[in-house]
C-alpha cells in the first residue's frame, strides 16, 4: 500500500479510507432501514383499483426485504474492515487528542459503538440464514427482531461515528 503514498499525502490517504468507510455505512444504513421497516410494518396488499396512490412511508416499507440480506452482510463486513483499518490511526491521532480535551463521554459512546458493531458482525451468519429461509414462518419473529436489532446498532454506530468525526475527524 505504500506506493499510494507516492501520489497522495498520508492525510489524504486516511481521509479517503474514512470516506469510503462512511459511504459504506450510509449504504448499509439505507438497506437495513428499508428492511427493518418492511418487517416492522409489512404492507398488506389491498385491492383498491382506482384508489389513491400509496404514500412515501408505504412505498418505503413495501420493499422486498429478503433481497437486502446478502448486500447487508456484504456492506457490514466491508464497512467493518475499513473501520478496523482506520481504527488503528484513530487510536493515536484522534482518540488521544480527544482524551486530552477531556471529552470522555464522547469516547465512551464511540467505544460502545465499536463493541456493538463487533457483536453485530458475529450475528451476521444467523441473520443471513434466517433471511435465506424467509418463507419459513417459524423464523418470522426472530428474523424480524434480529433485523431490528441490527438496524438499531447500525443507526447508533452511524450517528456516533458522525458526532465523533465532527469533534475531531481525520485531517483536523
Amino acid at each position: 500500500m505504500d506506493f499510494v503514498l507516492d501520489y497522495i499525502s498520508v492525510t489524504t490517504f486516511w481521509t479517503v479510507l474514512f470516506i469510503v468507510h462512511a459511504l459504506l455505512a450510509v449504504a448499509l444504513l439505507g438497506a437495513l432501514t428499508h428492511q427493518a421497516v418492511a418487517v416492522w410494518g409489512p404492507v398488506r396488499l389491498a385491492s383498491t383499483p382506482g384508489g389513491s396512490a400509496p404514500g412515501f412511508v408505504t412505498r418505503f416499507r413495501s420493499v422486498f426485504a429478503p433481497s437486502y440480506a446478502g448486500v447487508v452482510c456484504l456492506l457490514w463486513v466491508l464497512a467493518f474492515i475499513f473501520g478496523a483499518i482506520i481504527y488503528t490511526k484513530y487510536r493515536i491521532y484522534v482518540r488521544i487528542p480527544i482524551e486530552q480535551q477531556g471529552l470522555f463521554k464522547t469516547l465512551g459512546a464511540f467505544e460502545l459503538k465499536e463493541h456493538l458493531v463487533t457483536i453485530g458482525l458475529g450475528l451476521l451468519p444467523i441473520y443471513w440464514y434466517l433471511w435465506k429461509n424467509a418463507r419459513n414462518a417459524v423464523y418470522d419473529s426472530s428474523r424480524k427482531w434480529l433485523t431490528i436489532v441490527l438496524a438499531a446498532i447500525c443507526w447508533y454506530g452511524f450517528l456516533t461515528g458522525h458526532v465523533l468525526n465532527n469533534v475531531r475527524g481525520f485531517g483536523s
Partner: peptide, 25 residues
C-alpha cells in the same frame, strides 16, 4: 431457542455500558 439471536445482544448492552463506566464521568 432461536430468539437468543436477538435477546442476547440486547441483554448485553447494559453490561457493555457498565464496562465503559470509566468514560461516564
Amino acid at each position: 431457542p432461536l430468539a437468543l439471536a436477538w435477546i442476547v445482544p440486547i441483554a448485553l448492552v447494559p453490561v457493555l455500558i457498565y464496562s465503559l463506566k470509566f468514560y461516564w464521568r
